[in-house]
Design a binder for these strands. Structure first.
Lengths: 126, 126
DNA sequence: TTGCAATCGCAACTAAGTTGCGTTTAAATT
DNA sequence: AATTTAAACGCAACTTAGTTGCGATTGCAA
């Protein structure tokens, strides 16, 4: 798969992610674009953009799917397997530019890890 | 809330977790007990047992809810905030008895973290 | 400008989990 | 042991995120 045509829907979706660097949940995006794009299309586009390496996704503590812009992903593979942060007060979600190393585990081969850090963001701390 | 009565349903659910030390997804548990307990009851019991500190739960990479026995949880608080492991080959999920430290993050207060490690389990490595 | 595969919208569907409510039951009380 | 009653239960209907099938539309290359 992958995005082939530069349709209006693609622009609308990508535009939402250009506004700022925060992540957006699929649910929220569907709502925001409700009067412009059908929800089926939104979900399909998110899948494609993720496939193309323009977006990456992850789940928050409620199992809700969030998407964010990729910074160093290629078309073939997501390179930026980084932790994500969710503010327990205001709910914003974004990417953490830190590396957390998973130690070796006896008798298992660690391939990947998904880390969600919960706490308070800079705005909510003030 | 909390488990008050020792009903047959409670025994049946807890019995599933006694069989071995692996985690069980809510979906799987509902299926296993389908002919004995109504799914509504299973979900309600899982909530209560979690509330009581007998079980804890977490989400896997698909957002599916898994439950496992607590080892050092009290009624008031889950103490064992540990990482969990899911085998990408056979799908088993269990608790990791290791501690992964989250570094300080500038301008944020880290309260909690949820870590899912993906890879191959001992059986699938052979 | 024409052809057509990619894209889209719509309606219907799937599946995990929840809610409301009337019935059953554990277990304390008499 | 019988009575009582709130906790626990089963059932049906509902909610909601996400998916599927399919016919209509559209980007874009020839």
């Amino acid at each position: 798969m992958g995005v082939i045509r530069k349709t209006q829907s693609v622009s609308l979706v990508l535009n939402e992610f250009e506004k700022n660097s925060k992540a957006i949940s699929a649910i929220e995006l569907v709502k925001r674009l409700d009067d412009k794009i059908n929800k089926t299309t939104v979900y399909r586009l998110l899948d494609k953009l993720e496939d193309d390496g323009l977006l990456h996704y992850f789940l928050d503590s409620n199992g809700v799917k969030w998407f964010a812009k990729c910074k160093i992903c290629s078309k073939s593979k997501h390179h930026d397997v980084h932790p994500h942060f969710q503010c327990t007060d205001c709910g914003i979600v974004d990417c953490l530019e830190i590396k957390i190393t998973i130690p070796e585990i006896p008798n298992r081969k660690v391939v990947n890890s998904q880390i969600l850090v919960l706490g308070q963001c800079d705005l909510c701390l003030q």
